[in-house]
Amino acid sequence: MSNRIDEVIKKVQKEITESDIYRSIYRIPPGDTPRTRLLWILDTVYLHLHPSHVSRHGCKYFFTWGMGGISFLVFLILTFTGVLLMFYYHPDTANAYQDMKYLMHDVPFGPLLRNMHRWAAHLMVITVWLHMLRVFMTGSYKPPRQFNWVVGVCLLTLTMLLSFTGYLLPWDQLGMWAVTVGTNMARATPILGHEGPFGEQLGMTAYNDVRFALLGGSIVAGNALLRAYIWHCIALPLLVGILLMVHFWRVRKDGGISGPKLEG
């Protein structure tokens, strides 16, 4: 019986992998040979981020904890759910909160969409911290990877800023006051904030200091919501995208996943 099932599965598999359509998509001949293994990496656009060979220990989960990869996956999930959320969201104080209610009650799969974006955002902050912890603990910031660590620190900062700007968008008490508390700190910026050291002496007021620039006003209101929205949906994701390209490029150019120099 199970033999027969096996046979059927094999046959279906063969039908699929040898069909013109499948072959036109994948370009890779069927079978598991060293050549096809290479082609899977070299000839598929999604996998070509990888080198064709990796060190043996690089494949062990507990060497890298997969945390860089997981951070990237979560970033992709956030981009996907984020774009869908944008279809339902108006960045103005009259609509933003209503849009949330609408998502949670009327949009098909709306709650799943919103929850997933929210929890993935928190998760990404956590996985990026853990990725940094791993990179530190294996000493992978050491030569030749110093610069990639610096790029990583920029990504860490941007990840937290992305999460922070997103917090305001539902325009509820939680987000508004969290962002108020956060941006109030900007008032105290030395020289550039009106309550910071030397700010007042240099002519800073609540209407021209850095906090005003961040919020587009002296309080968290409509302009702040619009600015948070643009940072969150356009400017920061673009920056992160560019830095991720540099990051991955450097992982490859610096010799792949770090490891002890032993060969031999």
Partner: peptide, 21 residues
């Protein structure tokens, strides 16, 4: 000491991605 990325690494990435999703 060096292995084919496919399937050795891709396998682990795929599993991790499944678990996370």
């Amino acid at each position: 000491k060096r292995v084919h990325t496919f399937p050795f690494l891709v396998k682990v990435e795929f599993l991790a991605a499944l678990v996370v999703i």
